[in-house]
């Protein structure tokens, strides 16, 4: 639940995350940030705007377009006493630097028998809805959730974004911080001016309900809330659960909600195969089967690359309408 305090202010999703990062940089001099176009634009979508002036060139580092090189440098710097925040512009680009994340950052602590710390935060943009097409619209967080050793944060609100980036910067494991680009400026909310942290592995119940549980992530949390408002008028009470972090994931919160409602819909913008929708469905099938009054339903993107044309992309993405239909179908099995 969002807190509003006297010292709160209205911020966009991106502004809230940026504020959390800047406040931590004021507090902890071992934090440096690296990314492409930091000098010219303050990074993609100006996420580090004003940082060079505020924190200096040696802490705000402009990199060449060499994702393996600078991301690996982030891993090496993290292993040797710094706390780097490396911006991987779009998650789609992990394809050119996968080794440094999957084989190096995620595994060093384990391979070295625990004798390494990799306090690295990788910020990256995910998601569709802006006609950015197949190489700039993927979610892919399930790829990283699949790999032991990396924590994965998928915030949906300004309040969560700020609190979770602060937590990411106060722990010692590599973190992928996934920001849905559609939410960056379209979502606003009241955010405390002071720094605060939200623990990883604690889901947030974004709306309480009794008939059906909808688990969403990032943008689909908002779509699920919209669907819940429509369904309420039809007499269907929806509970919306936002895990916020998928590694670690709050299994108990999901199970508790399904125990209460008896029905589960998982809404995920990532690809349908081997994704968070199947993962959360498997969790409930394995540990909460007896709570279920109806089959689990999944509302995901389609099993294709992300298309360009707005018409095709709309058909591809999960929508409020598809969530509403899924909820009606599951509740009809009373």
């Amino acid at each position: 639940m969002q807190k509003t305090e006297a010292t709160s202010k209205n911020l966009t999703f991106l502004q809230a995350i940026t504020e959390g990062l800047a406040q931590e940089m004021e507090r902890d001099k071992s934090i440096i940030v690296m990314g492409e176009d930091v000098r010219a634009w303050g990074g993609v979508f100006a996420r580090f705007k004003g940082f060079r002036e505020r924190f200096g060139d040696d802490r705000v580092i402009d990199t060449p377009i060499s994702e393996s090189g600078f991301l690996g440098a982030g891993v090496g710097a993290a292993a040797t006493g710094l706390r780097p925040v490396v911006d991987l512009m779009f998650v789609d680009f992990f394809g050119v630097t996968g080794d440094q994340i999957i084989n190096q950052a995620a595994k060093m602590k384990y391979m070295f028998g625990g004798k390494a710390k990799i306090p690295l935060v990788i910020t990256t943009l995910i998601g569709g809805g802006v006609s950015a097409a197949a190489q700039h619209s993927q979610c892919l967080y399930s790829v990283f959730a699949h790999i032991p050793g990396i924590k994965c944060v998928v915030p949906s609100t300004p309040y969560d974004g700020k609190g979770l980036i602060v937590t990411a910067l106060r722990q010692d494991d590599p973190v992928m911080f996934f920001e849905h680009k559609f939410l960056h400026s379209s979502v606003e909310g009241m955010v405390p001016s002071e720094s605060y942290s939200i623990p990883f592995g604690v889901a947030d119940i974004k709306r309480e309900g009794s008939d059906v549980t909808i688990v969403g992530l990032a943008r689909t949390v908002h779509q699920s809330l919209e669907a819940a408002a429509i369904l309420e008028k039809e007499g269907i009470s929806v509970e919306v659960v936002d895990p916020r972090t998928i590694v670690p994931i709050d299994e108990q919160a999901i199970l508790n909600s399904v125990k209460k409602t008896g029905r589960l819909i998982v809404v995920d913008e990532d690809y349908p195969r081997c994704g968070m929708a199947t993962d959360i469905s498997a969790l409930v099938a394995e540990k909460g089967f007896n709570y279920l009054d109806a089959p689990i339903r999944m509302v995901t993107s389609l099993n294709t690359p992300v298309p360009f044309s707005p018409v095709l992309e709309e058909a591809y993405l999960p929508s409020v309408e598809r969530i509403v239909q899924a909820a009606r179908a599951t509740v009809s099995r009373r």
Partner: peptide, 29 residues
Amino acid sequence: HIADVELGMLGANGIVGAGLPLAIGAALS
């Protein structure tokens, strides 16, 4: 994967060429 970070030994590495970015990161640090 033998490593001893306290001795500055940042690891043998099973991936060819993977140590170079790590080294520039240590140098940056």
